[in-house]
Design a protein around this nucleic acid. Sequence first.
RNA 1: GGUCCCAUCGACUAAUGGUUAGGUCACCACCCUUUCAAGGUGGCGGUACGGGUUCGAAUCCCGUUGGGACUACCA
Length: 503
Amino acid sequence: MRAITFTSFHKSMSVRVRFAPSPTGYLHIGGLRTALYNYLFARHHGGRFILRIEDTDRTRYVPGSVEDILDSLRWAGIEPDESPVHGGPAGPYVQSERTELYRQHAQLLLERGTAYYAFDTPEELDRMRQRQQAAGIAPHYDRSSMRNQYTLGQEETRRLLAAGEPATIRLKVPLHGEVKFTDIIRGTIVVPCKDVDDQILLKSDGFPTYHLANVVDDHLMGITHVIRGEEWLPSTPKHLLLYEAFGWEPPAFAHLPLLLNPDRSKLSKRHGDVAVRDYIAKGYFPEAIVNFIALLGWNPSADRELYTLEELVEAFTLERVNKAGAVFDLSKLEWMNAQYLKRFVQSDLPRLIAQLRPLLAERGWSAPDIYIGQVITLLHERIHRLPELVDFARYMFTAPDYDESFFNSVWTNDSHTLLDALSALIEQTEPFTAAALQERLSAFAREHSLPFRRIGTLLRLVITGVSVGAGMMDTIALLGKEETLRRIEMFCHWVAGRVPSSA
RNA sequence: GGUCCCAUCGACUAAUGGUUAGGUCACCACCCUUUCAAGGUGGCGGUACGGGUUCGAAUCCCGUUGGGACUACCA
């Protein structure tokens, strides 16, 4: 009984990690978290973070994906040290530009006797699997009965190859023994060799599969720690066997818990947005997204929720990464984004103005930056994401729409008289500040034994048209005397127009 | 089906053999209040189950149950 034991090596050499997505569409939020953890680990240890594009399946390639991945990473503030666009000493960083390398390495394995040619067609493999399933056995490539260099013999193999017969190269997995390794997050994992399939390494089109390309590149690029999603855990024994087949020392492995849908299945479209692009479009702050996903599966243990990227780098260790999957809970993200919104209103209003201005322009609205900034400051505590302001604060940029049910609940027979009095009061108020307005209107309310609520609500209806918003005095002060009086007038016209003279 | 992984409030998590099992989100109530928020205070709510080991178990071991991933000439 042979046992192959792989001990993870924590070399004194500097850390090199990589994020290796496939360009099959927009960057997934789960992919961003994987990239983030790699980045945090690299920065924490003063190492390097590498982006490698794994585009060995040409049929799944989606144009524009690489740009989206790069843009999304940059947006999140996790810039690679080495990548197809940043360059670096271990390039090229795109697998389709390294195909010759994989062929050479597959050849090397052939020579070492740890890989072999197979000539089975997809149909034959299908039938094999069906037979096995019918017999109640786990589907497995059966090296002893299928068409490969062992069953066909050297001569026939050479002949088929010379004749240009489509051939794949498979890994020769030992029949006995076990693969044992230590995952930094999960501890010791043991898998019997008999449960490891003779994985195809080189496809008949000459391109490598993920397994070959991944192992070859990780070795050639000097990757010290493979930090990837849990979905790769079952194929790790294959990779370890590959390292051994090459005679290479494997990197350390850390398999991250999955990001989950509310039903605890692997996070997918269907349940909502999964592309980083979607979250950018919805106006989430990169700081909030990074903070939020960092805490999905990892926690520095302090009773604290808000961390800057620098603070995450400082605190990050793989040892504290959880084993169990984490549900992506949108409501907590919303809360966190609101926290950052409050923070940025204090620290970086110009940034918020720059973000909001184009959204207002889409509606055909414009205003001076100073005014936009004042509106953001006035209303930001009522929203979670800045783009919500376009609807929430529409009356600050254009004439109000009067909400019918709000109108019906507020407007009474004597409202007109009250409104006339308020109008006169507002006109006389000088300076036109929230405090001055408050003082005058409060005094008026006292004199006439009116609850202030009555005044505030009536003005809210007349000035904004909707029942929710910031404090009315602040709102009126910001709108200005002229605009306020104009709106009272507008409202009166509207009321006159809508009542079909019944009295 | 097979292999592997996982299991603390509804969600994210802390507690790494000794705590009344802590914090955050969500939810509820109250305070504040011209609306809605924000903020403050309080509340609801959990160690999946069963066996061990131990003076003592959320924590270690075994089993059960449940969930997930993987099982392609995809990654």
